[in-house]
Design a protein around this nucleic acid. Structure first.
Lengths: 335, 335
DNA sequence: GCCGTTCGTCGAAGCGCTTCGATATTGCGC
DNA sequence: GCGCAATATCGAAGCGCTTCGACGAACGGC
């Protein structure tokens, strides 16, 4: 492996000149720079990561704390992980993955060994055990998800409250008076999982505000359970004409299949809207109107906010990504 | 942050003594060691990662190359990632995650900047673009998955051939003469994806060997497509009495639901076996006999093989994990 | 033509750790 | 009681990089 020393010799300059030429932190003559660039290319020189970490103030490594609960929906989770790892690369950062126990315990290790410059926390619960920890860690941290107490923290997430309100608003404007909400499995709510609860509560509030009746069910990812849930909606909401799905893809598929079997066509007999979904709904049959969970945007923003903190000082902020509504023709006005 | 210097002073010894006490590479007096341990604990000392990398020969970082194709089944993929990250920790290693483009391009960067000590490649295709690359990289590498040409490479994977043979063998022994195989979506095979092809081909060979009729279908993850696939099996195999599922969880659920709707009870009317599944099949209705895809075992083994290479020299090996058969009562003898 | 700048380059001092010889101390055989 | 081997500890030399202060050269203003 070539070292900076080799490059310096090949270019006929000193080590510090090479360093400055590569970092751009001081002006370097054009001719000199060219010779250095040529030497770098010819030797295939790459700065030694360890040396850089030790001498410089940056490690160019980002910790990604990604605990995975038994009930975590893997595809969504994965999308966030991908978004963050890719966004990090745009800042010339690599990502150290901390899973399971290490998602909590590893953080302190990352910081005290100075392995990483910053941390992104994924899948933050309302009352997350990582929150008190990162509060005392003196390092840039961004939480993807909003904990109960955000004091002093930088957070980013989809504005689930606005998304819930938008769902109700659109359907109410179409004349729907009874709107069913299909949520995630019950454990998630019991565990204090973040966004399902925020969505559910804001949905209820919006329903009250717009004066529409609503009922909430939490089926398991399992056909029988979904059928029971649908039946419960019909029983509780006699004039049911619209359903909002705030659940995983398999439950979407099952619900659509069950509606088909019941002879309910979409959107004539039933308007269906997918809210906060991390997967493409236009592959479903029929394609569904959707308020996407923009994992790519949110994840990337989580990295950006961390990088901002690395630069100058930025005040802690809670940043809510506004929801978008994408129509696919699966909702219609009540006739 | 405390440095080794602080620890040395607090314990009243030299820096090198602290280093040796912590690494155990030279004998240290019991009393001295105790004082050092106390100082370490009291100061909360953690070796600086950059300094360690630079001075030592190890970085204690492992690269995990995990490209994610559009058709990759996220839960299975995630299980491998988790298994590897957790196994790495048992060797005191952290995992640098390389996704998408970086899964290929990042590798060279990892090596030439000496950021990582070893590499694990996930989701290796038959003709994977990373294979020629890692062959020329002078660093411990383990592939999870078996490429077409394994010369000079260390690989580990479930023995899919044996798994396919085991499937046929068990069902043939129960007297089944016509066995349907439901595979993954067609794109996977077209792309040269690794294990679906290995399973399919070995299945056909085993069927020929045991003299049973078989037919292979590749439904999309979509109820209509699964229904069509089932109908095709029934049409092609008039005496169909057993089905092997080598596909994703949602397709399992759909197939079982369709069989139920057709009034076919398991195992009386139809024996069903799930082969090489990364998810628990006892949550299905009914629970299915399964030959598991042992992601935890395979992933961990991938790490272990890499660590072995880091230690002494070990010859490249292709290690096939033998399949296991777990009965849940979803297959029965033909009556 | 002299002084104060600006520009381009260099030497050297670390960053915190590992590791290779020493050196000092102890214990043992005879 | 002497020498030799083990045992315990230390000092110092790097690992490859960043960054600070210095310094020579070129340049414009007067």
């Amino acid at each position: 492996m070539a070292t900076i020393h080799d490059v310096a010799r090949a270019a006929g300059v000193s080590i510090s000149t090479v360093s400055y030429a590569l970092s751009g932190k001081r002006a370097i003559g054009a001719a000199t720079r060219d010779r250095i660039d040529a030497a770098v290319a010819q030797l295939g020189y790459r700065p030694n990561a360890g040396a850089r970490m030790l001498a410089g103030s940056r490690t160019n490594l980002l910790a990604l704390s990604a605990p995975l609960h038994a009930d975590t929906y893997a595809p969504a989770h994965m999308t966030f992980v991908l978004a963050i790892a890719e966004a990090a690369r745009e800042f010339d950062y690599d990502t150290v993955l901390l899973v399971q126990d290490e998602a909590v315990n590893g953080l302190r290790r990352m910081v005290s060994s100075k392995l990483v410059d910053g941390i992104v926390l994924l899948d933050v619960d309302r009352d997350d055990s990582r929150v008190p920890l990162v509060r005392e860690l003196d390092i840039p941290v961004t939480l993807v998800g909003i904990p109960a107490d955000t004091t002093g923290l930088t957070c980013v997430d989809l504005d689930f409250e606005a998304a819930a309100r938008l769902s109700v608003e659109r359907l109410a404007a179409q004349g729907h008076r009874q709107i069913g909400l299909i949520g995630h499995p019950e454990e998630l709510y019991a565990r204090g999982s973040n966004f399902p609860i925020r969505f559910r509560d804001a949905f209820a509030a919006a329903a009250a505000e717009f004066g529409v009746g609503t009922h909430f069910v939490m089926p398991e990812q399992e056909p029988v359970s979904v059928r029971v849930a649908l039946e419960e909606l019909r029983r509780e909401l006699p004039g049911l004409s619209a359903i909002v799905l705030n659940c995983n893809e398999p439950v979407h598929t099952m619900a659509l299949e069950l509606l088909r079997q019941d002879g309910a066509s979409i959107p004539q007999d039933m308007s269906v809207l997918s809210a906060c979904s991390s997967f493409p709904t236009d592959q479903l049959d029929p394609p569904l109107d959707v308020i996407p969970l923009p994992a790519l945007i949110t994840g990337r923003r989580g990295v950006e906010l961390t990088m901002n903190q690395l630069g100058g000082y930025s005040e802690p902020v809670v940043e809510l990504v506004p929801p978008a509504y994408i129509a696919k023709g699966s909702t219609a006005s009540v006739t």
